[in-house]
Amino acid sequence: MTAAPFITTSSSTGRKRPSFRWRVVDIVVASVIGVASGLVFVAWNIAHEPLSNLVAFLPGLSALFGGGWLFAGVLTALVVRKPGAAIYGEFLAATVSALVGNQWGALTLVSGLVQGLGAELVFAAFLYTNWRLSGTVLAGMGAGLAMAITDLTLWYPGAGILFITVYSISAIVSGAVIAGLLSWLAMRGLARTGALSRFAAGRDVAAPR
């Protein structure tokens, strides 16, 4: 075998076209984010009941807290920036939630898949180039809309029109704020800690040092 020569290109600091192929570190870190998010889901499964009772006076407003289950896909995509990351992260988190055991059973997996897809489609619509706040919030809204669709189909098929409307709008708002804005802030914070040094996301937010 001939030695693969490495060529020094010292001035190539310009933006390289990002590769869509998943590296091992992309897969593993996406997995870790998915799993850690799944643990947050488990906590949220329990915590959201009393919270949603607070707003039980208006039908469907409980979906405002649904964003607690939507951030996994958005955050994973923001960190690794690969096609499918939103679906993978959200699905894995849902799997952890289901394996630990929750009230929604096997359909947690379906919800995870569809909600991940909701965010994924938005990122894909921007051809995986918009990782700014705007794209992130839209992706969060996509996940929120997906949640409204799955929940209303799977769990509240008997609901009236008022409930459906309020629930959908609440879900989208929740997705925008919790899954969108919060994920974006979390990603910026993570980048500043240097934990994302192997990712383009981490290099874009230069650590102040």
Partner: peptide, 8 residues
């Protein structure tokens, strides 16, 4: 942060 470090 700790999780991502471990993951890397």
């Amino acid at each position: 942060v700790i999780a991502i470090r471990r993951g890397s």
